[in-house]
């Protein structure tokens, strides 16, 4: 019973408490670049989730064999392998999405969420927990970027998932599907997330371990968080 609860909390951890996009502020590049449409957000999220679950699983399986010194190149190779798989699958079955997402699919390799989870979680936990963590984080990421994509698409193009929704309400402001809109919507949503979940938890809770995980894989990101919080 207790174990089951543990698994569930691992799964839900990534969705709100440690939401990779709004809380840990990881993987900013794809969150901003591909979210001009809700559909793109969904596609990117699904691709990243696949890579996340696969690499978490493999890394947790090989964590005891890999010497500490070469762990970073090994992790990168595993992640790059899964990224290549997802890239080829998309090219074969969903060429339209693949074209829309362009170079941001191969760029999943340098998405800090995946590396951070490998360092912070998969390296220290068993395969089942690692898969659940990958799924949870993936869903959290997908929900977050789909939300950003929805806001931008509704405000900027007046549609949602391609369906017109604001025809008689207001004229779409093109700015929101252009790059500045990405920064702005992201900023407003992070502010809203802070307001809703209260800042208190941020200071006590996960700052320490996210810093540890990021330090090796994506120091730029961990610095970004500190820069932001100070």
């Amino acid at each position: 019973m207790e174990e089951k609860k543990g698994f569930l909390s691992i799964l839900f951890n990534g969705i709100i408490k440690e939401n990779p996009t709004f809380r840990l502020l990881l993987g900013m590049c794809p969150s901003l670049a591909v979210t001009t449409m809700a559909k793109n957000g969904l596609g990117m999220g699904a691709a990243a989730t696949f890579v996340l679950v696969g690499s978490n699983l493999v890394i947790s399986l090989i964590r005891k064999i890999v010497p500490d010194k070469v762990r970073i190149p090994v992790f990168i190779t595993v992640i790059a392998g899964f990224t290549t798989i997802v890239h080829m699958l998309l090219a074969a079955f969903l060429p339209e999405i693949n074209k829309q997402l362009g170079i941001y699919i191969p760029l999943i390799v340098v998405n800090c969420i995946i590396f951070a989870r490998a360092e912070m979680f998969a390296q220290k936990n068993g395969p089942i927990s690692s898969i659940l963590d990958g799924i949870g984080m993936g869903i959290g990421f997908t929900l977050a970027i789909t939300l950003i994509g929805s806001v931008r698409e509704i405000l900027g193009a007046g549609t949602w998932m391609g369906i017109p929704v604001t025809v008689n309400l207001f004229d779409p402001a093109v700015l929101f599907i252009l790059p500045p809109g990405g920064f702005m919507v992201m900023g407003l949503l992070v502010a809203a997330f802070n307001k809703i979940t209260e800042r208190k938890r941020k200071e006590t809770g996960n700052e320490a371990d996210s810093e540890a995980g990021c330090a090796a894989g994506c120091p730029g990101c961990s610095k970004a968080m500190h820069g932001g919080e100070a």
Binding site: L25, L175, L178, P179, P180, G181, G182, F183, M184, M186, G187, L188, V190, A191, A192, N194, K195, R199, A224, M225, G227, G228, E229, A230
Partner: peptide, 22 residues
């Protein structure tokens, strides 16, 4: 404002810099 401190205001500033590049 409290909720905007840190990353949110940074992102909004980035948005304005990005507007100039448009």
């Amino acid at each position: 404002p409290e909720a905007f401190k840190g990353m949110p205001i940074t992102l909004i500033a980035a948005s304005l810099v990005s507007v100039t590049f448009m």
